[in-house]
């Protein structure tokens, strides 16, 4: 597998403010790479440098083998870009938007027309091709935006917050389309606040905070690296009173929180802690009702590394006070 993006000491300063601070990372061809971080962390600035909107103060990056500073035109020929807002021309029709994009990339007439038709069909917009985009829903505009980014048969797609503000159905359509395109060989660089989206879509993620990369790995490896966030959830049959202080005394348990009739035990050694909980229940004559081990979510990793609560916390990943 070869490299699609290689950032080397990429830096952006605005006066005294260092928005991106000498970051280094690589994205492999064919992968979906997630770029996560709280607001102001530097993820949009990094993306803007990679796509040629912003000029790095220091360092550089290569996109598909082309230096973004010295060979920016060659690099841009291979990129498809979807910004965080659907920047389509609302006074034009879907067809006109695609054709104009084709002209910007100087694609010959017959090729741009066949490509526009193909993309409109792929993105479910062909029936509405002659309608002004003004009347399109957010989800349709987003799909059109992605279609426009693919007009030049891009090898790498930059997606900034692809599903923010969309309903569940539109989000699902877009995620599935991105996965489909990726399975056909498209490299995807996605910036998102949505941890669940990153967890589901990305082969690897980078977490950026204060302009620096805090971690890069697969979502599962990042989760397992945060050992102290591993949790055992246990409830006992007919237990009377609060067992919190007694459970805290169990070896390998670092903290205990009572949530209703369940106790959440934090541990860095799940197998040993499980064995100790079993021993505790025997010793106390308690019958275990339910016993679950909960792995940290990507959101937990994010919060742990950045110290900041992400903007979107899907209810199913919400945790107690652990």
């Amino acid at each position: 597998m070869s490299v699609a993006i290689k950032a080397e000491n990429l830096t952006k300063r605005y006066g005294d403010l260092v928005a991106v601070d000498h970051i280094n990372f690589e994205v492999q061809k064919g992968e979906i790479f997630g770029f996560l971080g709280p607001n102001g962390a530097g993820k949009s600035t990094t993306t803007r440098m990679l796509i040629g909107i912003s000029i790095p103060t220091e360092g550089t990056a290569q996109v598909m083998g082309f230096d973004i500073r010295r060979q920016s035109v060659r690099a841009k020929e291979l990129m498809g870009i979807v910004t965080d807002v659907s920047n389509v021309y609302t006074q034009l029709t879907a067809w006109q938007n695609l054709i104009f994009t084709g002209k910007l990339y100087d694609i010959p007439k017959s090729e741009r027309e066949s490509r526009a038709k193909e993309l409109l069909q792929l993105f479910g917009l062909f029936e509405r091709r002659n309608d002004n985009v003004e009347g399109f829903s957010k989800g349709m505009r987003r799909r059109l935006c992605i279609a426009m980014a693919l007009m030049n048969k891009s090898s790498i797609l930059f997606l900034d917050e692809p599903t923010v503000g969309l309903d569940v159905q539109s989000s699902l359509i877009i995620r599935n389309l991105v996965k489909k395109l990726n399975s056909e060989g498209l490299t995807v660089f996605v910036t998102t606040h949505n941890m669940e989206e990153a967890n589901q879509m990305c082969d690897r993620v980078a977490i950026i905070n204060n302009g620096k990369i805090e971690a890069i790995d697969t979502p599962e490896m990042l989760k397992s690296a945060i050992k102290k966030l591993q949790v055992i959830e246990v409830s006992f049959v007919g237990s009377n009173g609060d067992l919190t202080s007694e459970l805290k005394k169990i070896q390998e348990v670092t903290d205990v929180t009572k949530n209703g009739d369940k106790y959440r035990l934090n541990t860095e050694n799940v197998p040993q802690a499980l064995s100790n909980v079993w021993g505790f229940s025997k010793k106390k004559g308690l019958t275990i009702n339910t016993l679950n081990t909960l792995s940290p979510t990507l959101e937990d990793v994010f919060v742990e590394l950045t110290g900041i609560q992400p903007e979107i916390r899907p209810p199913k990943t919400q945790r107690g006070q652990d």
Binding site: G52, I53, E77, N87, V88, L104
Partner: peptide
Amino acid sequence: RTFERFLSAP
């Protein structure tokens, strides 16, 4: 932000 389309085009 349609101006960004020009800036990111080749």
